[in-house]
Amino acid sequence: MRNVEPDESDQHLQPDEQVVAQAHETAQAHETAQAHETAQAHGTIILDTPACTSCMLCVRECPVWCIELSSHTEQIDEPGSRRPRSVAVLDTFTIDWGLCMFCGICVEVCPFDALAWSPALQPSASAKSDLVAGIDALSIDR
């Protein structure tokens, strides 16, 4: 980052207060932008499991086919309703980080906002199989 304080060799200069104030402002804006950028960093993707309807859109839109999911259908018979409703219940959901391009298409395509970016760094692993993340790993709020 730019040092806005005049250093010793500059001390013979009379700093223009307005210029110094402006420089401080610029530095602060830069810092805020950097913090914003870090918070927005596309580090990894997280899953809001209850929001996922197992609609398969992300699975089919992923360019490298690195998402897999399985689900089953349950009948919900609510008192007063004319007939039972069928709902899909998510059983498994995995993303293979060893294949993922971190392109965000799955995040964009999900109609239920069940997938979201997290700024956390996706860590390395000593085995390829450890890069396949299931519901537990994906649900961690990072």
């Binding site: 360019p63 980080w97 060893g98 993922c100 392109c103 996706q122 390395s124 000593s126 085995a127 390829k128």
Partner: peptide, 29 residues
């Protein structure tokens, strides 16, 4: 790690562990 975006390509190795032993895999593209 896996061939990445080219995992389905006839010309691309499905990961460098096809050729040499790998100690650590770093995800990302």
């Amino acid at each position: 790690i896996s061939g990445g975006p080219y995992w389905d390509s006839y010309a691309v190795a499905p990961g460098i562990d096809h050729a040499i032993p790998v100690t650590r895999y770093v995800p990302g593209c």
